[in-house]
Amino acid sequence: MTLSPFAYRRTYPLRNGYAVTFSLDGLQLQVEWSPDLPQGRQARKLVKGYRLARHRFIASLGVNALVVEL
């Protein structure tokens, strides 16, 4: 992922050694997982932490936002 030097980025540690990084570059929101995208049971264990991190990231922007999960 190539971000402009003006992109806003925050990383949030999750459980079991995972972390999620949210980046806002213009109007584009990007998400990166480290060390990789969790799958199956591990993914389900991280959902609550991911949602909290996403909420904190959006709140740090100082804007109101509606998040729709599909």
Rank of each mutant, 00 (worst) to 15 (best):
N64K: 15
G49I: 04
L3R: 02
F6E: 15
K48G: 12
Q42E: 10
Q42F: 05
H55C: 07
V63Q: 12
G40S: 10
M1L: 13
P5H: 09
L70E: 12
P38Y: 04
S60W: 05
L29P: 07
S4R: 10
K45R: 11
A53E: 00
L29A: 06
P38E: 04
N64T: 14
T21G: 03
P5K: 11
N64C: 12
H55T: 11
A59L: 12
S23Y: 08
T21R: 05
E69Y: 13
G17W: 02
N16R: 15
R9A: 12
Q28N: 12
R41H: 13
L24K: 02
V31E: 04
S60G: 02
T11L: 03
L27A: 15
V63G: 07
T21D: 05
T11D: 02
E69T: 13
P35M: 07
V47L: 10
H55M: 10
M1Q: 14
L3M: 05
Q42H: 02
V68P: 04
P5A: 12
Y12V: 06
L61K: 05
E69N: 11
S4E: 05
V20M: 01
R54Y: 03
V20E: 05
K48M: 11
L3V: 09
H55F: 10
R41S: 14
V47Q: 09
Q30T: 15
R41Y: 13
A65C: 02
R41I: 13
L3I: 06
K48L: 13
Y12T: 06
S34Y: 13
L52M: 13
P35G: 05
T11R: 08
A53F: 06
L46P: 00
G40D: 10
S60H: 07
S34D: 11
P35Y: 09
Q42T: 13
D25A: 00
V31F: 06
L3Q: 01
V68I: 15
N16T: 12
V67A: 00
S4C: 04
A53G: 07
A19Q: 09
R54T: 01
T11V: 08
P5L: 09
P38I: 06
D36E: 14
V20F: 02
F22E: 06
L66K: 11
H55Q: 14
D36G: 10
P5S: 12
S4G: 14
D25K: 04
L27N: 15
V67R: 03
A19G: 00
G49M: 00
L37N: 10
F22D: 01
T2S: 13
L29G: 01
M1A: 15
E32H: 02
Q30Y: 10
Y18F: 11
A19M: 08
A43H: 08
L29V: 08
T11Q: 09
